[in-house]
Amino acid sequence: MEEITEGVNNVHITAADAHKSNRIQVSNTKKPLFFYVNLAKRYMQQHDEVELSALGMAIATVVTITEILKNNGLAIEKKITTSTVDVKDESRGRPIQKAKIEILLGKTEKFDELMAAAAEEREAGNGEEQN
């Protein structure tokens, strides 16, 4: 029990890292790609920027989300951070190192205009379906 307490006491988390309301931790198994694309758009509407974070194989998903948002004129890259983190491997019982990426995206100047146009298109499309 002492070891656990000692380990917990040695963990230092800054207030900014403890809970970022604009951070999305991406998994390539839990949700479909466009769930994350749409969530990122919503976070940018609320916070003007979004941080996408992923480990290991999910890194490709984060890069794809970033490229979709950039190619649609919605986001610009503000910062990209790569690192390596120790993750406990349950099958081996010892920590393994995994690559980590964090990409900070900001809204483009045309973000609000493009989002408003997309919302209008959806509303117009819904009206046509009902006729």
Score class of each variant (00 low, 15 high):
Glu129Phe: 07
Val26Gly: 08
Ala99Tyr: 08
Ala75Val: 06
Leu55Tyr: 14
Lys100Asn: 07
Val11Arg: 07
Ile24Phe: 01
Asp86Arg: 03
Lys107Ser: 12
Ala60Val: 10
Ile59Asp: 01
Arg122Val: 10
Glu129Asn: 09
Thr29Met: 04
Ile80Leu: 10
Asn131Thr: 15
Gly125His: 08
Gln46Met: 09
Thr61Ile: 06
Met44Gln: 07
Gln97Phe: 00
Thr84Trp: 00
Val37Thr: 08
Glu120Ala: 12
His12Leu: 12
Ala40Gln: 00
Val37Gly: 04
Gly7Ala: 10
Met115Trp: 00
Gln45Ala: 06
Asn9His: 10
Ile80His: 10
Lys41Tyr: 05
Glu123Lys: 15
Ile24Gly: 01
Met44Asn: 01
Ala58Ser: 14
Gln130Ser: 12
Ile4Gln: 02
Glu128Asp: 07
Leu69Ala: 05
Ala54Gly: 01
Tyr36Met: 06
Tyr43Val: 09
Leu39Val: 05
Arg23Ala: 12
Asp17Gly: 13
Ala119His: 04
Lys31Phe: 10
Val85Ile: 09
Lys31Met: 14
Val63Tyr: 07
Leu104Asn: 07
Ala124Phe: 12
Asn28Asp: 15
Ile65Met: 03
Glu3Asn: 07
Ala119Phe: 05
Ala119Arg: 11
Thr64Gln: 14
Lys98Pro: 00
Glu128Cys: 03
Thr61Arg: 11
Gly73Thr: 11
Met1Cys: 13
Ala119Gln: 09
Glu49Tyr: 08
Arg92Pro: 00
Gly106Thr: 13
Lys70Gln: 08
Glu3Tyr: 09
Asn131His: 15
Ala118Val: 09
Ala119Trp: 03
Glu120Ser: 13
Ser53Ala: 06
Ala15Thr: 15
Ala124Cys: 07
Phe35Leu: 03
Gly73Met: 11
Leu105Asp: 01
Leu52Gln: 08
Val87Tyr: 02
Ala16Gly: 13
Phe111Ile: 03
Asn9Trp: 07
Arg122Gly: 05
Gln45Asn: 04
Gln45Val: 06
His12Asn: 14
Glu51Val: 03
Ile101Arg: 02
Gln45Met: 06
Lys70Gly: 03
Glu113Val: 08
Leu33Trp: 01
Ala118Arg: 12
Asp86Asn: 03
Ala116Asn: 05
Gln97Gly: 00
Met44Lys: 07
Leu105Cys: 01
Gly7Asp: 05
Glu90Phe: 10
Gly106His: 05
Lys31Ile: 04
Val26Ile: 15
Leu52Asn: 08
Ala60Phe: 06
Lys100Ile: 01
Asn10Gly: 11
Thr29Leu: 07
Asn28Lys: 14
Val87Ser: 08
Leu74Phe: 12
Val85Pro: 00
Asn28Pro: 07
Ser21Cys: 12
Asn28Thr: 07
Val50Phe: 02
Ser21Tyr: 15
